[in-house]
Write a protein that binds this DNA or RNA. Structure first.
Length: 479
RNA sequence: GGCACCGUAGCCAAGUUGGUAAGGCAAGGGACUGCAAAUCCCUCAUACCCCGGUUCGAAUCCGGGCGGUGCCUCCA
């Protein structure tokens, strides 16, 4: 099956055709770093990470660019409030964000350009726009003249007259038309030197949109394959990028535009004003990073996801099931002294998974396919199937999970780590649990099942579940 | 007001270039177990917000409603 992608530009699912055969250039608008990243950022990161992994796995040579916006009004304001230099402030949050990304198993992009490191490219692009009559300088600011670009609105399906009514001019702005937007902002009194650059129009700093036009062109060329980001960027950010890039070059910016849906909380968009804002960091204190990732991948990237504890718990259960199955499979093969070498994946399952991912990155469908494979692993082990058969299924489950960026750890390590996270969430003391288990083992040896059951019930009441097996007694935290 | 999106079982969620409803959770039954848990097997939507229309055939297309969300200002 060919790769099919839903394109915001055409509002339909289309067969993908690359600019250059076998290669895909992708630019995704990253994060503006003025605070810890939230679950919405996690969704964007996870969606495009899974997409890139899937593309590589299916044989595409991918050039993936994800930028950092490290200069903007909010960064400057926040940094000022804390008496910190804006550049250092932004750099600090990039570091914090990278920690979160690691926990979510997000791979680094091929290039992660920062806006502040591409000021000359932006100045050059702005110069070209002025030259071509699409932009004008006014008292140290430079604005893009929206009316000079006839295609304006083609991505967000808006017409200029509708926009006109809602547009407004901030005090101090020098716009000729309220719809025009800033390419360059003159430095204001008191702004730190670290966020002020010299330009032909005087000292200042770039507007938000121009960085993506400049950086995407630098790393991916004039017309590239895929441009992505959150749905809220469609207007005005991506619309403005298109206007800048296409007005400057006369060519299409990107052939496919992909936008991920929002994460909502209690069915409302997260926002600071509503106070329903959840940072990744906050969640990682309670949940396993892979469980969060699985939660985000369980819904198609374009649809909204409603964040609930129950939904994350559900995803957590799946990750648990995956690791338990891997551990059981590994144990089975080693017990059977299996030495069949590198097993072949099971074609049927690989094909079903691949079809799902190539259908507009349908991770929900793909997850269901993977789960089925784990189910087969367990079923065949229970049926005492030949090790070679189990090995093939196990290998398939692992491979496909890795494409989704799941199950990255050694099973036994993961199970132990996950249990600690869960115990912390529930306020359970692992050492105390171990002590009680010792007591119960003694009771069971003495055939005092009444005492043994009493201990189990006591532990169950605080959310600890015991598992008696041939190797002794193990425990898990109930969700 | 303009522009998009969404409405599928108790819950979550695929399927929407039409062909007769994936999967998960929960629930019930069974195997296994000292009892459990884990695991496996079986059952679980004549039905896809409502009303019309097109069609041999519609959850999928068209029209009209109802309900919800987002964007139109910074926002993943």
């Amino acid at each position: 099956m060919p790769l099919r992608l839903f394109n915001t530009l055409t509002d339909e699912k289309q067969d993908f055709t690359p600019v250059r055969p076998g290669r895909i250039g992708i630019y995704v608008c990253g994060i503006t770093v003025y605070d810890l990243a939230h679950v919405g950022h996690a969704r964007m990161l996870t969606a495009f990470d899974a997409a890139v992994r899937a593309l590589r796995w299916t044989g595409w040579q991918v050039n993936f660019v994800r930028n950092w916006t490290d200069v903007d009004d909010k960064i400057i304001r926040r940094a000022n409030e804390r008496g910190e230099d804006p550049q250092q402030f932004a750099a600090r949050f990039i570091d914090e964000c990278r920690k979160d990304m690691q926990a979510l198993n997000i791979l680094p992009a091929d290039a992660e350009p920062k806006a502040t490191e591409h000021i000359p490219e932006m100045i050059e692009l702005i110069g070209k726009l002025i030259e071509r009559g699409h932009a004008y300088a006014a008292k140290g600011d430079v604005y893009f003249s929206v009316r000079s670009f006839p295609d304006y609105g083609k991505l967000s399906k808006r017409n200029l007259d509708d926009l006109q009514s809602g547009a407004r001019v901030e005090p101090g702005e020098q716009k000729r038309d309220p719809l025009d937007f800033a390419l360059w902002k003159a430095a204001k009194p008191g702004e730190p030197a670290s966020v002020t650059w010299q330009s032909p129009w005087g000292p200042g700093r770039p507007g938000w949109h121009i960085e993506c036009s400049a950086m995407s062109q630098k790393y991916l060329g004039i017309t590239f394959d895929v441009h992505g980001g959150g749905k809220d960027l469609v207007f005005p950010h991506h619309e403005n990028e298109i206007a800048q890039s296409e007005a400057a070059s006369g060519n299409q910016l990107a052939n496919f535009w992909l936008h991920n849906g929002f994460v909502t909380i209690d069915a409302e968009k997260m926002s600071k004003s509503l106070g329903n804002f959840r940072t990744i960091r906050d969640l990682l204190g309670q949940w396993d990073g892979e469980a969060l990732r699985a939660f985000l991948l369980a819904t198609h990237y374009r649809h909204p996801i409603n964040f609930t504890e129950a939904a994350v718990a559900d995803a957590d259960r799946r990750i648990e099931y995956f690791y338990e199955t891997l551990a059981k499979g590994d144990a089975y093969l080693s017990q059977k002294k299996y030495t069949g070498g590198e097993p072949r994946p099971v074609d049927e399952h690989v094909a079903a998974f691949r079809d799902a991912m190539e259908d507009d990155f349908n991770t929900a469908e793909a997850m269901a396919r993977v789960e089925r494979v784990y189910g087969f692993v367990n079923a065949r082990i229970d049926a005492k199937a030949p090790p070679a058969e189990v090995a093939a299924l196990l290998h398939t489950a692992r491979t496909l999970s890795h494409v989704l960026g799941l199950v990255a750890r050694a099973p036994l390590d993961a199970i132990r780590e996950r249990r600690l996270v869960a115990a912390r969430r529930k306020g359970i003391d692992p050492a105390e649990v171990d002590r009680q288990i010792e007591e119960r083992i003694a009771a069971r040896k003495a055939k005092d099942f009444k005492a043994a059951d009493a201990i189990r019930n006591k532990l169950a009441s605080i959310g600890v579940e015991l598992r008696d097996g041939p190797q002794g007694t193990d425990w898990r935290v109930l969700l």
